[in-house]
Design a protein around this nucleic acid. Sequence first.
DNA 1: AAAACCTTCAACCGCCTAATG
DNA 2: ACATTAGGCGGTTGAAGGTTT
Length: 320
Amino acid sequence: MGRPPCCDENGLKKGPWTPEEDEKLMSYIQKHGHASWRVLPELAGLNRCGKSCRLRWTNYLKPDIKRGNFSREEEQTILQLHSILGNKWSAIAKHLPGRTDNEIKNFWNTHLRKKLIKMGIDPMTHRPRTDFFQSLSQLIALANLRQIIERQLWDGHIEGLQTVAVQAAKLEYMQSLLHSAVSIVTSPTTTTSSLNTFTTELEQTNHLCPPQVPSSSVPELAVQVPHSQMPSTSFDQEIGKTNLFSNNIVNGNEWCSMEADNSSPKSLLVPENSIPPLIDMPVQNFCNTISTPNCDGGNSMPLPSWSEILLDEELMGEFA
DNA sequence: AAAACCTTCAACCGCCTAATG
DNA sequence: ACATTAGGCGGTTGAAGGTTT
């Protein structure tokens, strides 16, 4: 035989605690302590299981629990510790006196994680996300494609208002799919299955016919995005047939070359058939790296750490 | 004013590990 | 050594309150 069985949870109360229950639990623990959570509810006159009592005590009733908003220092500590420990909430809580693991976990999920995502930082790796920009380039390409269709309409190159309207609607749909892709990619809850679902949906757009854009429009569009970055669907292939993306302009490999040099098509581009990786370096180092001559033309300035930026509400406004 | 939508967070669920007989 | 359970932990849920339309 092992340990004696835990309390029979059948018929025990669940849900929010009443002030009376809190009072019973508090007074019992203050008098007798909590040597065994299993027998505590019965001795304290509570119709709860020991697990529920323990949770209520550790997360709410314990006298040394700090209440109220997290301070700037606490936020900084959580960010730093999370970058090292990950979702080890109890380990993080040990460095924040008066804060419970549950409270820190909630604070992370409702505030800090969102801040990181808003800044394009992967909340799990604490590294900047570059795949977001890949999707962005696709959106730009589609937006330009629609612009061209609209222009062709004005120039009278395409006959039939209805045809164009339908094509524009289809493109709108493609764009919304890509927006979904961005959300999926940046979501911390992204799973292989959610990505597969999206891919399936994208594949279902196979019936979409690409707009018949005259070849005279090709150069204008070709500088926007390489073929390798388009979704691999028949829609993509159709675009290839019309030469919209057949000019392979991928010749750069500097993913970070996001300077405002519109004359060079290599901005925002990555080598053909490659996916831009998340930058493989600690967050603080990345801040220093992006101010190197390759990226900003030599105007190197010491940048604040991500955690400092995150805690600066004014600076955050710049990213909003 | 009210319905719809969003955010927060206390509490639960289920898994894992250490403890126990 | 093994079976079994308590305690601990992280993930998730859903009610309540707040905000927007």
